[in-house]
């Protein structure tokens, strides 16, 4: 499976080291994907890297990826400019259970860049808002400058059918919002635990503590979904790098129902 060329239509700087790219297929076409799925992005002469899709599943002709420059390939992706071409393979993996969550409250807990793979889920929920109960977004970042999609979050906060709570670990000048880790938002969040589905993405430590708080609220492990991150090279289940116990994160994940991986989740270095 070889990459298809996509051209950079737009590039927005989200934070100091994170950029959002909008891509259009060279020669037309589109990419249908489910919220939570990912692509392999290929930069000519540099390499490939797995990046979750962060755009709107209802707009398959415009592919959106939010990328944080943490290594050579991600840095090269972030350096791309309007008009540049990169290769895309995908979409891969199993995403968020947005269809299964119909009729339920949905609690989205995101940490840092973990909001990127959750944004398509939120788009989906808002597009079919009447199918869901309460929808809550709890988002934590390091500082106010590290918040993704700041303007969009402001718009979401203005909606009556969406409860958005944002918190930062460290406040900086002029921040009037919450200060504290994202887990502190959980006890006060408005949802009905036995009828809620939680979608969680962030650093593994953050997800661990989030799961504990949600459990304390009475959300069962079969109602929590987390998106795992592992080294991935092929995205096809062949290269072996993304193994997480019996699971291949690329193929069986990246989104897992928590009760199915509960036994491994606490095991160190697995």
């Amino acid at each position: 499976m070889v990459p298809r060329p996509w051209r950079v239509l737009g590039r927005r700087q989200e934070t100091r080291d994170t950029f959002t790219l909008e891509l259009e297929p060279v020669g037309g076409g589109d990419m249908r994907f489910g919220p939570g799925q990912f692509n392999m992005l290929y930069v000519f002469g540099v390499g490939e890297v797995p990046i979750s899709i962060s755009g709107d599943p209802a707009r398959p002709a415009c592919l959106v990826h939010t990328v944080r420059a943490v290594g050579s390939v991600t840095a090269a992706v972030c350096r791309l400019r309007r008009g540049d071409v990169l290769g895309v393979r995908g979409p891969f993996g199993h995403g968020w259970p947005v269809a299964e969550a119909a009729g339920e409250d949905v609690v989205i807990v995101a940490g840092g860049i973990g909001l990127a793979p959750l944004r398509p889920a939120l788009y989906h929920l808002l597009a079919a808002r009447e199918k869901y109960g309460r929808v809550v977004l709890l988002y934590g970042a390091r500082t106010p400058q590290d918040l993704l999609y700041a303007r969009e979050i402001e718009r979401w906060r203005g909606r009556f059918d969406l409860d958005v709570q944002v918190t930062v670990d460290a406040a900086t000048g002029g921040w009037r919002g919450n200060v504290g880790v994202v887990t502190t938002l959980i006890p006060g969040a408005r949802f009905d635990p036995p009828h809620a589905v939680a979608l969680i993405c962030g650093p593994e430590v953050m997800m661990r503590f989030t799961i504990r708080e949600l459990q304390a609220r009475g959300v069962g492990p079969a109602r929590m979904f987390i998106s795992m991150e592992r080294n991935m090279q092929c995205a096809l289940g062949f290269c072996g790098h993304c193994q997480f116990g019996p699971a291949f994160v690329c193929r069986d994940g990246p989104v897992f129902r928590f009760d199915r991986i509960q036994g491994m989740f606490g095991v160190r270095e697995i």
Partner: peptide, 14 residues
């Protein structure tokens, strides 16, 4: 205290 410790971890940082 637990939340503060988590805050100290700076989990979203590099």
């Amino acid at each position: 205290l637990q939340a503060t410790r988590l805050q100290l971890l700076d989990v979203y940082g590099h």
